[in-house]
Structures are given as structure tokens and as C-alpha cells.
Amino acid sequence: MNKTDRLLAIVLELQRKKVVRAEDLAILFEISVRTIYRDVQALSEAGVPIIGATGTGYSLMEGYFLPPVSFTVEEAVTLLIGTDFIEQRFDSDYRVKAQAARGKIEAILPESVRNETSRVRKAMRLLPSDKPITPSKEREYLEKIRRAILDERKISFRYIKRLVDSEENRHSFRTVAPYGLVLVQGSWMLVAHCDLRQDIRHFRLSRISALIDLEDRFELPAHFNLREYTPQDDRHMQVSLRFNQDMADKVKEANYTYMEDMEEQQDGLYVVLRVRQLDESLQWVLSWGADVMVLEPESFRNRIREEAEKMLKRY
């Protein structure tokens, strides 16, 4: 990064944060603290109102705002593709905001950059996964939950969970403090503190119904950070499989959630799954028909055999 770009980046960093230490700027731009001192002096001499406080850091004078900066073609394409993604996967409110943002971005681009950006975007397309775009009911809940998170209000809903070793579902009513929303492989997941379990739990929005906003308030714990949050991994069971060699590419492309390891050998593709419960992978394994063989555990081999016998009787 040359000096001109670095000076601009420093101003943007100061504009983004209230106070920034010289040491932190030095680490961010991979330069010495002494160089940061010289850069800040150069910005001050150029008329940028930077305030420095010993032992605290640098900040911009209140009210100062850097005028809009220009985007490169690559930066513009990145932002516009981002609006496409939000329009596909977020709720109606953000979908409208994404459309408005796209219009504003395109409006401020110089004609040459706008034309080149349009040309690049015609060669790129953001397609949804094989799963359907977020259903309308799920979009509605997504918006309600998002607002409840920002307002720090609790919500309640009915939750459906498939019972292991059963074709029935279990329905339960939950009251939770919503901490955040996570998009996992095309499916929205709510991370929340459940009053019933007295702990953090994860809820698929596709399994939620009868959602109600409550007046009860909650306070997000100071130690909780969604970006740093890592759920406890309780997948302690392994399933070993062997796929026919001609299925290897399709299995790799499937990118199955529970896939832990794979290795190609002469007699096929060996895959290891790591799951919480064996039935979690039952439907996926059955979907490959005779192109896969369960090697272990024996109990899962028997489970597959039982399902195959049921299918044979049906036909």
C-alpha cells in the first residue's frame, strides 16, 4: 500500500471508530508507530482535524466526515453482488433496502466504471443453492426476530423437532431471548437463550411456527459475541462409508454437512461422517441407493437394511 492510499485508509479507520491508538494503526497497516506519527502529522497539515490524546489515541473532530470515495470496478462488483445476495436471502425490509442501495451505488459510479461494472456482472451470476429461496413465512419470521434482537425483546414460538427412531415430530413451546441469526448452508438459524433449557440453543426458522413478540426485555450478556461464538461440538458418533468409484465426484460436490474425512482408493471413495445421532444421516445415505455401503457401525448397517426391507415390501 502506497502512502496516499494509507493516508486515506487511516482517515477511514478514524471515521469508522471513535478512538484509535497509534499502536493499533501500526499493526493494521504493518508499519512502525513512528511512521503512523508522521502520517497523522501529514494529514493534520492537509487540513484533516485529528485530535490526539496521550494514552488514549487519535480521533476525528466531531462533525468531520470524509466525502464519498470512488470505487474500483472490483469493489463496485463486490458491493452489487452483495446486494443481490441480501435481496435473495433476507427479509422484505432488507430486500427493499438492498434494491435502494444498489441504485445509489450505481448512481455515484463514474460512467466508465459503471459500464465496466455492468460488463463484469453480466459474466457473473449469483444463483441460489439447490434449496429453495427463503419461504415467505420464514422471511416474515426473519424480520420479526431481527427486530426483536435489536430491541432486546423476548419472543415465543412453537418448535417442531423430529424424534429419533420415530416418524413422529415433537412440538414444544419456547420462550427465548434472541441473540443472533446465522445463515448456515442456505438455512437460517436462530441462536437464543432458551428459558425452558436455561442455556443457549439453536432453532431452525423453518421449524418455527406461531411466533409472537413479547414485551419482556432481556440484556445481551457482555461476554457474548456472535462473531466469536462457537457452539459446543457434540457430534461424537462416526459413520464409515464406501461409495462406488464412479460416484466420487458427486459425493465431493454434495459437500455434506456431517462429512469429516474422505479418501479415494482403488475400490472406491471412503467417507467418514461425524454425527450426533445415527438417524441424522439416514436419509442422506439412503439417497445414494446401491452406490454406497455402510462399513460401520454395525447398528447403522442394520438400520439401513431394515429401511431397505421396508422399501422392498412397499414395492
Rank of each mutant, 00 (worst) to 15 (best):
Y37Q: 13
C194K: 04
P297F: 01
Y159S: 05
V19Y: 12
W288G: 04
R121Y: 13
A222Q: 11
H223I: 04
L278M: 12
N244H: 13
E168A: 11
D234K: 10
R227C: 10
G82Q: 07
L273S: 06
R146F: 00
T78S: 12
S240H: 15
S118K: 06
V272K: 14
L12Q: 15
R147P: 03
Y270A: 02
T4Q: 15
I200L: 07
K3D: 13
K17V: 14
K144E: 10
R305F: 08
G289H: 10
D39Y: 11
T35F: 06
A222V: 09
Y159R: 06
G186A: 03
P49M: 08
A222T: 08
Q277M: 09
A210W: 05
E116G: 05
A123L: 13
K17R: 15
F218M: 02
D195H: 03
R114I: 07
P68T: 09
A46W: 04
P135F: 01
L150K: 14
F300N: 04
L214Q: 03
V271Y: 02
T257V: 11
I160R: 15
F65Y: 14
G186I: 02
A53L: 12
E106C: 12
D84Y: 13
I155V: 12
E116F: 03
Q99E: 14
E106I: 09
P135S: 03
I212M: 09
L127C: 06
L14T: 04
G57F: 02
Q277G: 03
K313I: 08
V77R: 10
P132F: 00
K97A: 12
R21W: 03
R242W: 10
T54N: 13
E87P: 07
D39S: 05
N225D: 15
T175W: 01
